[in-house]
Amino acid sequence: MTRLTRRAQRLWRLVWALIKGDPRADRVVPPTGFTAWLTLFTAGAMAFLAVFALALSLATGRLADRWASELAQSATIRISAPAEQMERQTEAALRILSQTPGVAEARALSPDEQRALLEPWFGADLPVDSLPIPQLIEVIEARRGFAAEGLRLRLRAEVPGAVFDDHTRWRRPLVRAAGRLRSLGWVSIALITLTTAAMITLAANAALAANAQVIGVLRLVGARDTYIARAFVRRFTIRALTGAVAGTLAGMAAIWALPSAEEASGFLTGLGFAGAGWLAPLPIPLLAGGVAFWATRGAAFRALKDVT
């Protein structure tokens, strides 16, 4: 416990020293123009992309969850039979359902409910009673689920007019795709992080090489490695943080500005953040800063190994 607090204190001192900075220490290493812009731009662009990857991941995750839970919970049985057999077949179907383990509830829709379903297409005064409309039975699944194939076989044997639709047929691949898309989002974020680390390492190496003479002189007058490394680390961390804040804000603004449409219109409009989800991109700049910190630190200590 005390070791943990000591570590936290050390980390905090490190971060604080980094934020507070030492203007004089910063001045002993001259800035290298193009590495500054490279870092700023890389961090900005990568943060922008990361926001989209994150949005994709969260949105597809939400979608997959919703679809999966709907698909797991409900199914429909449609009975098309001559009018005189309708009632008998409906009863038979309900009886079978009541005997099927895993069915929590099965209920034939009333004529009013059926009319309500058809109303948007055919208008309010549809004579449901006199038309040969199929009878719908709503099946609510218990948590542990039922054996859909067994139920289908029994229905086919005993209720010739029944068509069992468990939504699964068309939605299962969608759920799989959504799940896959979610993982791809996370993979993208990992790749973006690695690319950022690589680019910042390259920029830091360039800055270190351009300042090889300076580093040599600093060592000769008694500078410790951490002192020299910090001058570089601080600079790159702040640039990456700044770039990433700008990139993150730009990405969030772009997502916020996506034209919104009805929830029902599907997947694309789901690409966004919902409620507290808007907080999700906030760690991106911190991640970029952390990546810059460790990448530059590593590059600096590697470069210093060759200086006596």
């Binding site: 004089r24 220490a25 001045r27 002993v28 001259p30 300076v214 040599g216 002189v217 600093l218 000769l220 007058v221 008694g222 500078a223 410790r224 002192y227």
Partner: peptide
Amino acid sequence: RFLDHLPVLDNIALPLTVA
């Protein structure tokens, strides 16, 4: 062995600075 981007005074004070 000076730092060419820093004025003479800062170069002379450099050992103090880095310490």
